[in-house]
Nucleic acid binder design. Structure first.
Length: 416
DNA sequence: TCTGGGGTCCTAGGACCC
DNA sequence: TCTGGGGTCCTAGGACCC
């Protein structure tokens, strides 16, 4: 079976979306995409990293993920704009609705990337390249931003293709083009070769995707275990996953935050854990799931991370129960180092409809569930801060912490 | 690095059992 | 205990993605 797969990637997504919005709202007549600019977090809250960059900013050597401090050193005139996640969701949704006009199968890989299956659609819409141009132009005309489209016979190659020259370009990377278009690239450009793997590969004398493709899989296994086989297959353009019709069930739900100051006392740390647990549990209840595993993570002021987890005796979605577990975990794990970052996550999720309640706990469960439900409803109607725990009063801390995506995206998997 | 926040997947090592 | 080996389960940490 020969597939035709599209991978759509919004060019500098956050930055393009903000630029488009500003032009449409006539906030400014400057197009952020044409000047050195970035979307960046708030340094005073210690969130100061580059989230997206314009092409002119890239020319200064500015990279996604680097600190704003270092970005500004590379380009003193850099324009820095805070992120507007609600806007980003809207733009993403608008793009997906365009795809859904034509494609029964839209796999939303992330907020700014989709896979589409064009197999057997040529007799309706023309050749893949023709239709990709039509789609790209339609998005630009109706929504105001540009995308790259990669076309191939599987998801991996389509994704690699969309990463070639940018912006506003269409590329193919069919199996017979792999040698010519992919093998000369640095191995770091291959999907699933990150910094650590890249460093190890370089020590083995493997610098290009072609060298990786032609190296001995057993040697790779010896150094990288199963990941070695994976990247060897990817370097050869082999991947088997199909475009998924809908989002897979989430495996876990977590929120974490970098605190604007170092936390040195457990009372403050636990308040922050509560604010994180509140959002985690709201999302958990919203997805109609219950969790058996609770984990916390702590990053200290000197960037040393640790985590700790426990299985509950029974799955739950009750805020106070999960918070209790988080506190126990924190007390066991914290080594009294000043804390920069805290996280709460639940996993081992099952559908709530299969809940089995122990007889002893039934009253308690009913009471807590009724409370959580009422709080969720009030927050939904009057806003998230309309009802907060008394312990947050005068604490100077946010009563709810962590982003809550309005829609759950299918999540990224290394298997393409 | 003046270094975010949301995820998934894999593995080494320890506990426990036979 | 001057002792084996194998299987399974759990945990913490680290790799990767956007």
């Amino acid at each position: 079976m020969q597939y035709t797969i599209f991978h759509i990637d919004v060019n500098s997504a956050y930055l393009s979306w903000e630029a488009t919005y500003r032009l449409q709202q006539q906030v400014s007549c400057v197009d952020l995409r044409t000047i050195p600019s970035i979307i960046g977090g708030d340094e005073s809250k210690r969130h100061g990293i580059v989230l997206a960059k314009s092409i002119p900013a890239k020319k200064y050597g500015i990279k996604t993920g680097e600190s704003l401090f270092s970005a500004r050193q590379k380009c003193p005139s850099l324009v820095i704009v805070p992120p507007n996640y609600k806007l980003f969701m809207k733009c993403s949704d608008a793009m997906v609705s365009i795809f859904k006009e034509y494609f029964p199968l839209v796999e939303r890989y992330s907020v700014d990337e989709c896979f589409l299956d064009y197999t057997n659609m040529s007799h309706h819409f023309g050749s893949p390249i023709q239709f990709a141009h039509y789609l790209k132009n339609k998005i630009q005309k109706e929504l105001g931003f540009t995308v790259n489209i990669g076309i191939s016979s599987n998801k991996l190659l389509a994704k690699m293709a969309s990463d070639f020259e940018k912006p506003n370009k269409i590329h193919t990377l069919f199996p017979d083009e792999i040698q010519e278009k992919m093998w000369s690239l640095p191995v770091r450009d291959l999907f699933m070769v990150g910094r650590a793997t890249n460093n190890k590969l370089m020590k083995l004398g493997i610098y290009t995707i072609g060298q990786l493709a032609n190296s001995d899989p057993d040697l790779l296994y010896a150094h990288f275990k199963s990941h070695g086989y994976l990247i060897h297959a990817y370097a050869n353009g082999t991947a088997t996953a199909i475009v998924k019709p809908c989002s897979p069930e989430a495996k876990g739900i977590g929120n974490s935050t970098t605190i604007s100051f170092d936390v040195t006392d457990s009372r403050t740390a636990k308040l922050i854990l509560l604010s994180l647990t509140e959002t985690v549990c709201m999302r958990l209840r919203d997805s109609n799931m219950i969790a058996k595993m609770v984990s916390i993570s702590i990053k200290s002021h000197d960037f040393v991370s640790l985590s700790h987890q426990m299985n509950l005796t029974e799955s739950t979605d009750i805020t106070s129960n999960i918070y209790k577990a988080a506190c126990t975990l924190f007390d066991e794990a914290w080594n009294k180092e000043p804390i920069r970052h805290l996280g709460v996550r639940v996993s081992s999720l099952t559908s709530k409809s299969y809940t089995q309640l122990s007889l002893f706990d039934f009253d308690n469960y009913e009471k807590h569930t009724a409370l959580d439900e009422s709080i969720d409803k009030i927050r939904l109607r009057y806003g998230n801060t309309s009802i907060i725990r008394a312990s947050f009063l005068y604490s100077g801390l946010r009563p709810l912490n962590g982003g809550m995506p309005e829609e759950n995206y299918p999540l990224m998997s290394s298997l393409l």
